[in-house]
Design a protein around this nucleic acid. Structure first.
Lengths: 183, 183, 183, 183
DNA sequence: AATGAATGAGACTTCATTCAT
DNA sequence: CATGAATGAAGTCTCATTCAT
């Protein structure tokens, strides 16, 4: 009801639209297209995100947030080993949309330095918990840390991007998961 | 005899320049920039590659050719197991330039169907030989085929892209290579 | 209420500029030139007319509109015969600018099928009235219809385009007008 | 056998090809396309016609030559009246190719001043003979001269360009021919 | 705050013309 | 003389960003 509420709602609409558009058409999609999808004028997009790059960062951050939420949730599971595996499987996902999460992770990777957002810290922490519990349960080798896991997460999801059917994806992902086992 | 020679040399210059430019600035780099780097006019670039897309394809194909050459060479090694491992290590590479090979592989993956170039067939064949010999030597699990290996190659090199130092890269790549071992 | 007004004014400015430029330099004149003449940026031209072809069509349509207005006005005259003659004389015009109307008619002719704009229908109807009244008054032969008149209109104005002085134009146009008389 | 002979043959090949290409694709067709059609290199086209405009002029002149030949031939006919009519009918033609002659005439008209080629003089003279004989035979009104006839020739062929069938073309051309009769 | 028209740099591509072979 | 590769100006169109309403 307050003008602030409308503004926030618009910000959210833009972010959602941007996520969808960049997912479907790649990051070269035009800002105009994002605005159209969000049902607002271009000016509104630029009011909330002063630059296309800023918009992209926000989208990635939002995706990261979801990865973090997944990790945090799974970190509370009893069976630490299966939780770790399921995290990989969720991220690698069945189809397109989920792929995006990795893109976000990857993008984060690109400019590790300047994007030191709190979100990133949270994701790392949830991931660390998930990993350590799996290692303590003897289900993941000890010589990998959070950074290696992130890299492998990205690798796994890029790898499965070129798989043509479910069984091929399974075989491919298994290689990586097997490689993560002790020994 | 000679006019042809000059033209071919220019084609090569353009291709090399394009490879460099796209590597450094991404595929959105302008054709003018490629021309500048090659030391020719834009018209020359378009004479040899009628479209920017055609230029990109040519760059990718050239990179693929190098992957194929590596695979073919290693396929003749006595120690099939170490040859297979070295192939991964070479592709994953030390740094930027080599990374590009994977990008090319990935790009190939995108349109598996329509890009049925002979180059692609040759790469697959060399890879198949390399893989089969490693499997016969009992160094690689039997449930993966050429397609899975290609996917993992892409995954491995994307994964190692986010590694910050040699030892981290080593640990990350080892996970995948270990995962490829029997059992 | 006002932002729309400005946009419409700009659209009109562009259309007018385009009409002038295409008249002076032919239809191969550049869009930049049109923008310059209109005192706007190129982007504005393309916002209103997404394609150069669309701009050309709009220019022709506007010219057609004027032909239609002339025909409609003359169709209300008492002396149907002189009205018909005057219509020819107006179209054939004194000099350059008016000539353009025929160019528009001609362009319409090219794609009779796909350019089924209401404007075209209106012009045909006004012309039909003008013609029928002249025929009923016994001033125009009965074996010609609207289509023949349009063709002759185009012919007359192309013919007079190569006339060097007023009297030559008169003699040339008279041939056609005489030819249109009964018998 | 002499090098001159080959050169002349090439000039002719280029001219023929240019005539065809410009007819089919309009005068914006590329010089490269003309060369291709002629089976020669672009360089050869430019050796014979130093400019695209020069090539166009040559094409138009060649077309004019044919108009002149037609006029000259018909000027020898016994029946001066029917000869004059047939000249119009030939020029207006049944279909595309012949149309080109008018284009050439029109182009000539454009720069009456600077293109004072002998060809143009010859055409005028043949036409003058044809016209005068028809007038002497009482078949063409006396108040038109060669210039008016040329203008009407152009007008007639532009007019019939928009006719959709033979009968419509007939009616349209008849209006002009009737207008040319005495009285 | 929101809107969307305006802007203009810059991208891709074409083509007349030149020139080394 | 012929060839066709090279050149680069110029054209069409897109899009991030600004700003008047």
């Amino acid at each position: 009801m307050s003008p602030r509420a409308d503004a926030l709602r618009n910000r959210a609409k833009v972010l959602t639209a941007a996520d969808e558009v960049f997912l479907e058409q790649g990051t070269t999609a035009s800002t105009e297209e994002v605005a159209r999808r969000a049902g607002v004028g271009v000016g509104t997009v630029f009011r909330h995100f002063p630059t296309k790059e800023a918009l992209l960062e926000a989208v990635y951050l939002e995706r990261l947030r979801q990865v973090g939420a997944d990790a945090a949730e799974l970190a509370t599971r009893d069976d630490a080993g299966s939780a770790f595996h399921e995290f990989f499987e969720r991220l690698v996902g069945q189809s397109g949309p989920k792929q995006a999460l990795t893109e976000a992770l990857a993008a984060e990777g690109v400019d590790v330095a300047d994007t030191d957002s709190p979100v990133r810290q949270e994701v790392r922490e949830s991931l660390a918990t998930l990993l350590e519990r799996a290692q303590q349960a003897g289900r993941v080798r000890e010589d990998v840390g959070v950074d290696e896991v992130i890299a492998l997460l990205i690798g796994a999801s890029q790898a499965t991007r070129w798989t043509t059917d479910v069984s091929m994806r399974g075989r491919t992902l298994n290689v990586i998961l097997d490689g993560l086992r002790p020994h």
